[in-house]
């Protein structure tokens, strides 16, 4: 694949949340607020880029049998790092994301990225892919948060929208709403892609990935 294709695949064709169906956990949890979604997206992007970089750089030093462990070590390390930095310099973000950012450490998005792509490609490509996937992740989160916050809470990043605040559908902003909105957005995207989500997922599963 050429560089542009590598970068773009993470955004639409293989959007981690909406197409590959990875990392549903943080998606649903932080999308009650647009700001939180953005924070999470950027934080995940940071971890993705760094971990892909490292894993790709070290790929020749770690044998196949220990690759999984090494991946987890690197990813978890970066998650802790970013978490500490967030706590010190962006305390509001840290509060909003809470425990869900830490759970990125065992999240499918990063592990899949690391496991297949970074492992098998050059450093530059891995970084590009990470960027693309991270941006795709952020976009997906942003779209879902937009729907959930504007229609579920009548606010945008905490600022009230005068008309909608009186007509909010609270359920969208609550726990069940997350599932609903994600499902709807996924259906929408698959309609745009003209490819039912089911197919893509099974394709991946046939390759024997760890689909977590």
């Amino acid at each position: 694949m050429n560089k542009t294709a590598i970068f773009l695949k993470g955004i639409i064709k293989e959007n981690p949340v909406l197409v590959l169906v990875l990392g549903a956990c943080p998606t649903l949890a932080v999308t009650t607020n647009v700001l939180a979604a953005l924070y999470m997206g950027i934080a995940v992007l940071a971890v993705l880029v760094c971990s892909n970089l490292c894993i790709s750089a070290l790929k020749n030093l770690i044998g196949d049998n220990l690759k999984f462990v090494a991946n987890i070590l690197i990813i978890t390390g970066f998650v802790s790092l970013v978490q500490m930095l967030m706590g010190a310099f962006l305390p509001k973000a840290s509060d909003m994301l809470g425990i869900y950012f830490t759970l990125i450490a065992v999240n499918g998005v990063l592990l899949c990225e690391a496991g297949d792509f970074a492992r098998n490609n050059k450093v530059v490509d891995s970084v590009l892919s990470a960027l693309g996937t991270g941006i795709g992740f952020t976009c997906a989160l942003f779209v879902i948060a937009l729907v959930r916050e504007i229609f579920g809470n009548g606010t945008f990043a905490g600022i009230e929208i005068p008309f909608l605040a009186d007509y909010k559908i609270s359920l969208l902003n609550a726990t069940p709403g997350g599932f609903l909105v994600l499902g709807l957005v996924m259906a929408l995207l698959s309609a745009i892609n003209k490819k039912p989500v089911e197919e893509i997922c099974f394709e991946n599963q046939k390759e024997g990935e760890v689909n977590a």
Binding site: F179, L180, G183, L184, A187, L188, V197, E198, C201
Partner: peptide
């Protein structure tokens, strides 16, 4: 059509 697979799964999860 476009709900087949995961999206309808999510609606059920809802």
């Amino acid at each position: 059509k476009y709900f087949k697979g995961i999206p309808i799964l999510l609606i059920s999860a809802f």
